[in-house]
Design a protein around this nucleic acid. Structure first.
Length: 487
RNA sequence: GGGCGGGUAACAAAGUGGCUAUGUGGCGGACUGCAGAUCCGCAUACGCGGGUUCAAAUCCCGCCCCGCCCUCCA
């Protein structure tokens, strides 16, 4: 099966062919670290985490680089305001932001190069740009001359003349063309600065990505990504710089993810509606937030709102239930009632359809739809106990394998916490505590079973409610009471 | 003003020139002390107006509306 990726450069889905067979090199624009990571960051980095997971699933060896912008106007402003050294300030937030993403269950990239640690490489690239005639020095600053780069505007589909017309850019005497952008900024008091052939200063924003991506991945590399908002000017400028300096093609596939809104509004500082990851996970579990994002296609803009998250939570529960049911079924040593070839072919079919969806520009909502269709089939077979435990295991392993691509099933069970609560409950009902949680639960259910036999409904219902509270779902069936852990 | 992307049932969200998307919610049924889960079935769609076609929500044209970018931004 062929993987197709929607390439912003061509605005088409293209067959994916890596530069080097069996390997994928991807670079995603990372965070500017001056405050906590927010759910917009989460949306983007989760999307690329899943892209990376799927590429790995397809057998590619993926090298994933994400930069850290730790030298920047906003960082300097924020740090100076608090009287902290800007580099210390950004160092603090680098750790914090990465931990925020950890907390959400987003896998870390392979490399996190920092702007402040790659200044020399940036200077070299700027020198090459100057040597090749694409830039100029102006009073300690260095600028890129957009008119010299004939391809300028190709990614964002803009023409230089049109941009000038509607530009809101302040004309600067230092720039020859208002659209020229800074490669190097001369030092101002209170700013971190480095020595350069043009005097003390610091790099412009765009140059770090051109530099670090080519340094870590070589040119051209396969995938470059980021939020939609970065198409212009950031990515446009990155292309100009990298190609002007090296004469090589920069990137083969550009992937841009849709920007998140909150209650249909853009998330921005001015609206004051930025939701930090830290705050979001107080209200919603990480897996719920992840599932919400995965239910949206990466290129469309998801809207973060109460109802949508509740939906995600309910849907997720359904997935956890089959997982638990399959686990139990496998342990119960069932024999096949009839030919289970059909069931096994359904498992295979699910895998194929899932891959088909993911091969189509990483279409996670479609993959989820296939997942739910599969769940219905599994439930049907489980209900009638038609299949052997071995066949169930096949379904189970497939569910886990594919689910993990969508970042499902990665939550560590909060075993100790649950155990404590169960033990408390056991004590209440005079059940002797045992080593295994499962056994304690079984004991408690015996108490409840007795109550039910005596038609002590209040007591029986109370036990059920209490277990539910802990996350244990109770189900009375003809063959007795079953239970499962639901997060 | 220029560029880009959208408008799908109660909500969320895919997709597609004719064949059930999917999940949550709703309704009915099986099951059941109740509840829940599960299964079976049902209902509610494709912004508006034209056109092409045997057939369009899907293609074309026009219109309306929304969002994003053009300034730091994932």
């Amino acid at each position: 099966m062929v993987l197709k990726i929607y390439n912003t450069m061509s605005r088409k889905k293209e067959e994916f062919i890596p530069v080097e067979k069996g390997k994928v090199k991807m670079y995603v624009c990372g965070m500017t670290v001056y405050s906590d990571a927010h759910i917009g960051h989460a949306r983007t980095y989760l999307a690329f985490d899943i892209i990376r997971r799927y590429l790995e699933y397809k057998g590619y060896k993926v090298t994933y680089v994400q930069n850290i912008t730790d030298v920047d106007d906003k960082i300097i402003a924020a740090a100076n305001k608090k009287g902290i050294n800007p580099l210390d300030y950004s160092k603090y937030f680098t750790e914090r932001c990465l931990k925020d993403l950890d907390a959400l269950g987003i896998r870390r990239a392979d490399f996190y190069p920092k702007a402040s640690e790659n200044i020399n490489d940036m200077i070299e690239i700027i020198q090459k740009i100057l040597e090749n005639g694409y830039g100029y020095v102006s009073d300690g600053d260095v600028y890129f001359s957009v008119e010299k780069f004939k391809e300028y505007g190709r990614l964002s589909r803009r023409k230089l003349e049109e941009m000038k017309a509607g530009a809101r850019i302040e004309p600067t005497e230092k720039k020859r063309n208002p659209l020229d952008f800074a490669l190097w900024k001369s030092a101002k008091p209170g700013e971190p600065s480095w020595d350069s052939p043009w005097g003390k200063g610091r790099p412009g924003w765009h140059i770090e990505c051109s530099t670090m991506s080519s340094k870590y991945l070589g040119l051209p590399f396969d995938i470059h990504g980021g939020g939609m908002d970065l198409i212009f000017p950031h990515h446009e400028n990155e292309i100009a710089q990298a190609e002007a300096a090296t004469g090589k093609k920069f990137v083969n596939y550009w992937i841009h993810v849709g920007l998140l809104t909150v209650n249909k509004e853009k998330m921005s500082k001015s609206l004051g509606n930025i939701i930090n990851i830290r705050d979001a996970i107080k209200k919603w579990k990480p897996d719920v937030i992840r599932f919400f994002f995965v239910s949206n296609h990466h290129r469309s803009p998801p809207d973060f709102n109460e109802k949508a998250l509740e939906n995600a939570e309910a849907s997720l529960k359904k997935i956890y239930r089959v997982k638990q049911d399959l686990e139990k079924y496998c342990k119960e040593k069932h024999m096949a009632k009839s030919d289970e070839k059909i069931f096994l072919s359904e498992v295979k079919k699910f895998k194929n359809r899932f891959e088909e969806a993911m091969d189509d520009d990483f279409n996670t909502p479609r993959a989820i739809a296939e997942l739910f269709s599969f769940i219905r089939i599994v439930n049907r077979y489980l209900k009638n106990k038609e299949i052997s435990s071995k066949a169930a295991e096949k379904a189970y392993s497939t569910l886990l394998e594919l689910g993990k691509i969508l970042t499902l099933f990665q939550e560590k069970k909060e075993e100790t916490e649950v155990k404590e609560k169960i033990e408390k409950l056991a004590k209440k009902y005079g059940v002797k505590t045992k080593d295994k949680i499962d056994e304690i639960i079984d004991e408690i259910l015996k108490i409840r079973e007795n109550a039910r036999k005596n038609k002590e409904w209040v007591k029986a219902d109370a036990i059920r409610a209490e277990l539910n509270e802990i996350g244990i779902e109770i189900e009375d069936t003809r063959e007795g009471t079953r239970w499962r852990k639901v997060k």
